[in-house]
């Protein structure tokens, strides 16, 4: 069964995934919108940077983040000089790392959904007196619903499953930065296979159910959209 520290790790994992997903939706939405509409000729540069976490070993990303966030790093040093605690080996540091690490998983589905809408529904809304912000919330958001759902679930699931980045910048502090994936690793290292089974099985089931919900919902939505 799960012991107390496993439950703690589970709590931290879910909290991290929720906060990360929320932040990603807030910054990912305008970013994806801009990417889907921009005519800027160097847009591909930004797209490549956002996609980097897809191909980079998490340890590489974690290593650079550690350098950035540590006491001697540009960001960590700046915060320390302002009197804040350093970000490395803290929950805040994990959030920053997760946001960077899961960014493409939220931005790309959103960007695809926004592009698929095209210009026409927005032009129609404009001729029906809707201001640009009004158009975004009453036309783009409802029509891009599958994109939001896919992005949120992928961002959430990907954050739950991260290991390398967390290990590099968060360490393994129980109750602070120890997440489920690391707890599983610890259990296996100490040959506590029963605990590892419970945690792994739980994670597997949760991930599968989330993806099931997304694909099931999007299938229905797409069927309706295509018919019109």
């Amino acid at each position: 069964m799960l012991n107390e520290s496993d439950l703690l790790a589970l709590g931290i994992t879910l909290k991290l995934a929720f906060i990360t997903t929320l932040i990603l939706l807030i910054i990912g939405t305008p970013l994806a919108w801009w990417l889907s509409r921009s005519q800027w000729r160097y847009r591909f540069l930004l797209e490549a940077i956002i996609a980097l976490p897809l191909v980079l070993p998490p340890t590489v990303l974690g290593f650079y983040l550690l350098l950035m966030l540590g006491q001697n790093g540009p960001l960590g040093g700046l915060l320390q000089s302002l009197g804040a605690s350093p970000l490395a080996f803290s929950f805040s540091g994990l959030v920053i790392g997760s946001v960077v690490y899961s960014l493409p998983f939220v931005v790309q589905p959103l960007q695809d959904a926004f592009s698929a809408i095209g210009h026409r529904p927005l032009e129609v809304a404009a001729t029906l007196r809707a201001s640009p912000l009004d158009r975004f919330f009453t036309v783009v958001v409802p029509l891009a619903r599958p994109g939001f759902l896919t992005g949120a679930v992928l961002g959430f699931a990907h954050t739950v499953g991260e290991f390398g980045v967390v290990l590099m910048i968060g360490g393994n502090i129980p109750g602070e930065t120890q997440v489920v994936s690391i707890a599983i690793y610890d259990h296996v290292e100490s040959l506590e296979y029963s605990n590892a089974h419970w945690l792994s099985g739980g994670l597997l089931l949760m991930s599968f159910l989330m993806l099931l919900a997304v694909y099931g919902f999007n299938r229905r939505f797409r069927l309706v959209r295509h018919a019109s």
């Binding site: 026409r120 529904p121 032009e123 129609v124 001729t127 036309v139 029509l143 619903r145 309706v224 019109s228």
Partner: peptide, 14 residues
């Protein structure tokens, strides 16, 4: 204050 009808009806699908 215009009304615009496009070539395809372009109704809001949602």
């Amino acid at each position: 204050p215009i009304g615009y009808v496009f070539q395809e009806a372009s109704l809001f699908a949602h």
